[in-house]
Nucleic acid binder design. Structure first.
Lengths: 260, 260
DNA sequence: CGATAAATTGAGTTTTGTCAATAAAGGTGG
DNA sequence: CCACCTTTATTGACAAAACTCAATTTATCG
């Protein structure tokens, strides 16, 4: 095997165990006012909002809002695939566990992203989704979908995800460690910028191990790459905090992106 | 850059130039009998068939059947995204061209596969699709879609594609050259088996360069890996013809797959 | 049959993974 | 509130896998 083996963070992270994520802990019960998509962090960026708002289903969507603590799962592989999840705030990791117990991170999701698309049209999920921090998540039952939201917005949602996946494939197939790391940072930075948050200073919510796993690198390579980026002066890393000083340079190292 | 650079096959392949693929060359004009999805090579495996047949749209789908010669494009990046394409027979490659003129192969498509999903919901395609051999392709105009086929079958179609992409991501992120090559062969073999064709003897329709590019390897590594597989006795390679003798061994080398 | 493209093979180098040791951070309980 | 323990991250030395360059062989196409 070419890469360092990793065990599932599920087995490691204490927060992932216990009953916390199987009970109704953290349910928000806000007033109708608050339930409007307009007041959501993701408003304007939430694709499901665009998808549903025309059909007057936004209220129902928001009513299923829930707070997930770090380590709590939205769903696990083999679970019945009965819903999509929209990240209202916070961040989520999706992953699969391989036969030998190794974990492969498939994607990270931030505010406005839709999680669980790969479960649609089938009985069960093939991946698992876990919250990386205290996150607010809107649950959209799939049973409501066919009638509610399969319009142009939904097609956009799907193709958008496909394109993001293609971007990752391109990154894994053709970029070296520097290129992968730079792409990763650039994508996160762009996302924050789109949300109106700081694009230059942000906190990573995933471990180095998660990043390495996602980028197909060894954890040591992630460490060393970040250090070299810092030594060259284009950013400063303080544990999980990233402070970008030369975004253009990062962009150049990142190279080609597949996007609209 | 970690990997060997490659130029677009479009610029190299003489069949890709000229007017052949912009005119109506190769249009099949069969009788209504032949137009039934039942008589199609992909029947029973064509997801769009499942998607449309209930709605009585199969006739319209088949009417747009066309033969593409090797090197002819279904669409190119930047083209208006106005249709999905179903491979009735033959094979197709989708790819993007990067800034520096390098090509990245995103996927290979065979009988029954749907090409062009990433163009949905947007104005234009971000990738290009080119026929690798003489292929028969059904065109499904997107303008017919919203009314025609957005049922359960379509959701399955989409999630199936997402899962295949995840499988590729997992392969690129965690497998060495042997694992990638074995996965590649196993997937193709399984597909042929599903179609009722030979799973042990088949012809690859893509160049070594395409394979290397798709798997994120150098072309020399592909050559050497195939040779080692042959030396170990598990298969025989004769140029593009593959004869598999020990499928189980190949499966073991391939390792974990993400699938239903 | 000649020219171009595709594929193979060998030699050498580089990137990145592996192993191992250490340091820093964060949480827990006395 | 501090000490301890676990988790996370960093750093160095070495090994291995894969890339690059170069030369050659084998197909393919006009």
């Amino acid at each position: 095997m070419r890469l360092q083996k990793t065990v599932s963070s599920e087995a490691v992270n204490p927060a992932a165990n216990g009953t916390a994520d199987t009970e109704g802990v953290g349910y928000a019960q806000p007033s109708l006012e608050v339930l409007s998509c307009k007041s959501c962090n993701a408003s304007g960026n939430c694709l499901v909002e665009q998808m549903t708002i025309r059909n007057g289903h936004s209220y129902q969507l928001m009513k299923n809002r829930k707070v997930y603590l770090r380590g709590e799962h939205m769903y696990r592989a083999e679970d019945e695939a009965d819903a999509l999840y929209v990240v209202s705030s916070g961040s989520v990791k999706s992953y699969v566990i391989m036969e030998d117990g190794e974990e492969q991170v498939l994607n990270f999701y931030h505010t406005g992203d839709v999680v669980g698309l790969d479960g649609m049209g089938a009985d069960s999920y093939i991946s698992s989704a876990i919250s990386l921090e205290t996150s607010t998540i809107c649950k959209l039952p799939l049973s409501n979908l066919p009638e509610a939201g399969l319009g142009r917005g939904f097609l956009h949602l799907v193709s958008d995800r496909l394109i993001r996946d293609h971007n990752l494939m391109l990154m894994l197939a053709r970029k070296d460690a520097d290129g992968r790391m730079a792409s990763f940072l650039v994508n996160i930075s762009k996302h924050f910028k789109k949300l109106g948050q700081s694009a230059d200073v942000f906190e990573l919510t995933m471990t180095r191990q998660d990043i390495a796993n996602y980028l197909g690198l060894a954890i040591e390579t992630v460490s060393r790459t970040l250090r070299r980026f810092q030594d060259s002066g284009m950013l400063v890393v303080t544990r999980r905090k990233i402070q970008i000083y030369d975004f253009d340079c990062l962009l150049e190292i990142a190279g080609t992106q597949v996007s609209r």
